[in-house]
Simulated assay, not measured.
Amino acid sequence: MKLFQHDYFPHITGDRVSLRQIKDADLDDLIEISFYDAIQAKTVQQAAEMQSKINQDYLDGNSIHWGIVDNITDKIVGTCGYYRGLDKGEGELGCVLLSKYYGKGYMTDGMSLAIDFGLNTLGLKRIWAATGQQNVPARKLLERLNFVQIAEADDEIEYELRQASGK
C-alpha cells in the first residue's frame, strides 16, 4: 500500500530540531546508529546499503525514516520514524540517538514532531513503540511523550500513545 503520494520526502521543522531525509554525506556520522532488520552497520558502505533499503521502504509506503537535525549546527543527532503497521493506519515509532547527544532533549523534540506528523498528516489511528526492559532512558522518553505500557514479553515492553481526550 502506498501511503506517501508525495513527490518529495517530508521535511518537518521544529523550534530546535528538524526531521529530514538522510543524505549520503550524513552516513559517516551515523554508522553507530545505522541498523536494518536489527543488524548494525560496521562500515560506511554497509550504512549506505542499509539506507538504500530504508529509502526503498519509504517509496513502497512501508515506513518513513528521518534524520533528527539540530537546527543550529545542521548536524544529525539521531534518527526516528515509523517502521511497521502503516498499511493498517497504525505506526510503530522507533528512534535511536547518537550517544554524544544523550540527555539533551533532542529525542523528545524529534519524536514530538514525528508524533504530530503521524497523527495530523498520516492520520494514524494508533501509534506504538517497543523497547527493551533494560532501556530505562527509552522508557522514560516514551512516558514523557504520553505513551503507556500495554504489554510485556521476555525482555521487551510495548507502549501505546495515549492522546488527551478530545483529540
Rank of each mutant, 00 (worst) to 15 (best):
Val96Lys: 15
Ile31Pro: 06
Gln163Glu: 15
Tyr58Asp: 04
Leu59His: 02
Ser52Arg: 06
Ile54Lys: 02
Asp15Asn: 09
Glu32Gln: 10
Ala153Glu: 13
Asp7Ile: 01
Gln5Trp: 03
Gln21Leu: 05
Ala114Arg: 11
Tyr83Glu: 01
Ile72Ser: 14
Ile22Glu: 01
Gln5Glu: 09
Ser18Ile: 02
Asp28Met: 01
Ala129Gly: 05
Met1Arg: 05
Leu119Phe: 10
Ile150Gly: 13
Glu160Tyr: 10
Asn55Leu: 04
Asn71Ala: 13
Gly103Leu: 10
Leu145Cys: 13
Leu113Thr: 14
Phe35Glu: 09
Ala151Pro: 12
Arg84Cys: 00
Gly94Leu: 07
Gln45Glu: 11
Leu19Tyr: 08
Asn146Phe: 15
Gln133Cys: 06
Tyr102Ser: 12
Leu113Lys: 14
Phe117Tyr: 14
Thr79Gln: 10
Arg139Pro: 08
Tyr102Phe: 15
Gln133Arg: 10
Leu19Cys: 09
Lys104Asn: 08
Ile150Ala: 14
Gly81Cys: 02
Ala129Pro: 06
Lys75Asn: 12
Asp37Ile: 02
Ser18Gly: 09
Gly132Phe: 13
Gly81Met: 04
Ser63Asp: 11
Val148Glu: 14
Leu141Lys: 11
Ala48Asn: 00
Ile76Ala: 09
Thr79Asp: 01
Ile150Phe: 13
Gln133Glu: 12
Leu93Lys: 05
Ser112Asp: 09
Ser18Val: 02
Asn120Glu: 13
Asp7Gly: 08
Lys88Glu: 10
Leu161Val: 11
Gly105Arg: 10
Gln5Met: 04
Tyr58Phe: 14
Thr13Asn: 06
Gly110Tyr: 08
Glu90Tyr: 03
Leu142Lys: 13
Asn120Phe: 09
Lys167Tyr: 13
Ala48Gly: 01
Leu161Glu: 11
Ile54Met: 00
Met111Phe: 07
Phe9Trp: 02
Phe4Ala: 01
Thr108Gln: 15
Gly110Cys: 10
Leu141Gln: 10
Ser99Tyr: 05
Asp116Ser: 14
Lys75Ala: 03
Gln149Glu: 15
Glu160Gly: 12
Pro137Trp: 08
Thr13Met: 01
Leu142Ser: 08
Phe9Ala: 03
Asp87Val: 06
Phe117Gln: 10
Val136Tyr: 11
Leu98Asp: 06
Lys104Glu: 06
Arg139Val: 12
Tyr159Phe: 12
Leu27Met: 13
Ser112Phe: 02
Leu145Asn: 13
Ala129Gln: 07
Tyr82Ala: 01
Leu119Arg: 13
Leu86Ile: 01
Ser99Gln: 15
Asn71Ser: 12
